[in-house]
Design a protein around this nucleic acid. Structure first.
Lengths: 218, 218
DNA sequence: CCATGATGCGACACTACTGTCCCATTATCG
DNA sequence: CGATAATGGGACAGTAGTGTCGCATCATGG
């Protein structure tokens, strides 16, 4: 998952105009109307695909309150819409290129604390978490998703390795195992929140508690 | 997940003959040949659907080394094959009707120990675990799956509640939250084993460790 | 060895979905 | 208000997958 000072408000995210394939009609620069329509389609896709990755484009169009023709004006095909969702996910999760990170002057807090703090933020992104992690293997190997879901570029993996080195995370377990556990607990928390079983902050708290101490009493 | 003294060897499981829709040609009682063919198809379905739930029947037939015609002789349609897989899963996971459980004379071990011991057994069932839990919501509400994947009939949920009552499990978290965490860690372990990252027993050990103490050092 | 059981092949009809296209209509902007 | 942008509707062709069917072939069991 990309590192950040915190997730960007979902409504503020704008797809880079360089992605010509995802542009709407006439491939000219976006107008506000077009930007809103495109974002409505992406949000609808994430909403539907979080729940059923086989959901057809017609259902997504309906969820977005547009016609299938309109959907196809913005996204020529299903893979293009999926790419747009993944690119938007990078923004939503505060995506920055890890190589751009500038080392901080002050020592960072323990990696465990940072990791859990990140989880508490991310769990509020409900549908986006379900979209990415309902089936953890869904986007394995997808070039746009490597930075999000546990590929070698995933900054969360780097954070886990730092935590193991500094002693705040279990040094006896493989890093990618800890990452898998982290994402799966994050998914559980987001799923609880999305289906209304509890508020997102409570789900985050329970997830943090589970990752700190397991399912035993504290 | 149904309680048992241990999972039944997969090869020994036989689909109840009462399931007429799933019987092979002529709906007469099974011959050994037919029983083996049916089981090969079910195993192939679980293998393919563990990895991709959209896998077509033609791919399942190929995996089972039968023709699509033959697959259709045994299972009239995709839902029938899915039902057969879920019924077989009940057998594989040692399914018994929870109401049939007779209270033991001697006190049972702590629920946490029982839970984790069960996990170490179940993780060896690789494909079956992935089939059921790759997408935790896949079979939600499916009548055949309630006893397996966290429905109210799930004996694991009862075990968790007993553990919370006796103090070996976190009493401050909702029982269905602990169940969701348990299944998600089980899935992670099975996935590591199935993709060859580590042996199943090592994955089980790591999962137990994570559920006992979280991702912090022990 | 032969009758019967079991299976494979492939054609066919059908379904659901997708991608393209065009024209009429509605919304937006200056 | 009018020109332009944006959209909806629906037809159409195509794809992938499914379910059915009949016949030839192979496997099995007595």
């Amino acid at each position: 998952m990309p590192s950040s000072s915190g997730p960007v408000a979902a409504a503020d995210v704008v797809l880079p105009p360089s992605d010509a394939a995802a542009l709407g009609p006439a491939s000219s620069p976006d107008t506000p109307v077009r930007r809103r329509t495109r974002r409505a389609i992406v949000d609808a896709a994430v909403h539907m695909w979080a729940r059923d990755f086989a959901a057809p484009l017609s259902a997504i169009a309906e969820q977005a309150a547009v016609s299938r023709s309109t959907l196809h004006r913005y996204f020529p095909d299903r893979p293009a819409l999926l790419d747009a969702c993944l690119r938007t996910a990078l923004e939503v999760f505060g995506g920055v290129n890890p190589c751009d990170d500038v080392p901080r002057a002050a020592p960072e807090p323990p990696a465990l604390d940072q990791l859990l703090s990140q989880l508490e933020s991310v769990v509020r992104l409900g549908d986006w978490v379900l979209f990415l992690w309902t089936d953890p293997s869904r986007f394995s190997g997808h070039p746009l998703a490597d930075d999000l879901v546990g590929g070698e570029d995933d900054t969360t993996l780097a954070l886990i390795r730092r935590g193991q080195a500094e002693g705040s995370l279990d040094p006896e377990a493989p890093a990618d195992w800890l990452l898998a556990v982290y994402y799966s607990v994050l998914y559980c928390a987001a799923e609880q929140a999305v289906r209304g079983a509890m508020p997102a902050h409570e789900a985050g708290r329970l997830a943090v508690r589970a990752l700190r101490g397991g399912i035993t009493p504290s």
